[in-house]
């Protein structure tokens, strides 16, 4: 499609974006509200940010969340790359259906079911719930997303390149490392970031599989939200939104510049 957008098209997109961004804008504005109430504007203040940095529990939760996210995303990306290679390059093999089935089912499986089943796994194995059980669970959830992202890139990656490397003297494993991996690197990075973000964001699976000392930020936020509006949440949210927005926009700009250079 290439014809220009009509007024209706522009209006739909604009309204859609307003709908998507309105709550975020409200949050950011009210994070600087001196008043405790959302409905009243009590003047500009950064006191909730100050309060945030004094809340040790919240800071601990952020630390746990980042560690869980980084480790689980790395695991998911590693295993996901293998799964993608097998699914794209392996042809038909026994276990392909099981692998593809497991991966795609995880994508849409309600989190409550995933969380419950993983908890039962850890109970039956006698593993004490804590940092590692959440990390493994998140790796399971995000493995599916990582696989799909890498698989999509690998599917369009010319297999002749790897053959050319072998033809010129590379053993298969080295041909993959020297040619295919650099080629799909952007997708692998994207998969890691996606997995990391999903892990940071997960409440349900973490609630089921976490234990004492491994409370994640979403778990803290959830109990805070349940207890009522706490302006500190606005402050945390704004910081997170700023962080993510900066990262995503930076990645986008880098990509655009690279494209413009070509």
């Amino acid at each position: 499609m290439r014809r220009g957008p009509s007024a209706f098209n522009i209006a739909s997109v604009a309204l859609g974006l307003v709908f998507l961004y309105a709550p975020i804008v409200v949050l950011v504005i009210y994070s600087f509200n001196d008043s405790r109430s959302v409905a009243v504007w009590g003047g500009f203040s950064t006191r909730w940010y100050a309060a945030l940095f004094r809340d040790q529990q919240l800071l601990d939760a952020i630390g746990v969340t980042l560690r869980v996210g980084a480790i689980s995303a790395t695991l998911a990306t590693l295993v996901g790359t293998m799964a993608a290679v097998a699914l794209v390059r392996g042809g038909r093999f026994r276990g392909r259906t099981a692998l593809a089935g497991g991966v795609y089912a995880t994508l849409v499986m309600p989190e409550v079911i995933l969380g419950l089943s993983l908890l039962f796994l850890f109970v039956s194995l006698g593993l004490p719930r804590g940092f590692w059980t959440v990390t493994l669970s998140h790796a399971t959830l995000t493995l599916a997303y990582a696989t799909v992202v890498i698989q999509a890139r690998l599917a369009t990656f010319d297999p002749a390149l790897e053959e050319a490397a072998q033809d010129l003297g590379c053993p298969p494993w080295k041909a993959f490392m020297l040619v295919t991996l650099p080629g799909i690197a952007p997708a692998v990075a994207a998969a890691w970031i996606l997995a990391f973000t999903l892990s940071l964001d997960d409440l349900v699976i973490a609630s089921f599989t976490s234990g004492p000392g491994a409370t994640t930020l979403p778990m803290r936020l959830y109990s805070a939200v349940r207890l009522g509006v706490d302006p500190k949440i606005n402050a945390v949210s704004t910081l997170l939104i700023g962080l993510v927005a900066t990262g995503v926009v930076a990645a986008y700009l880098v990509q655009q510049r690279r494209r413009a250079r070509n």
Binding site: L200, L203, P218, L221, Y222, V225, L240, A245
Partner: peptide
């Protein structure tokens, strides 16, 4: 951005 935060 956080799902919980957007619901909040």
């Amino acid at each position: 951005t956080s799902f919980l935060i957007r619901i909040y």
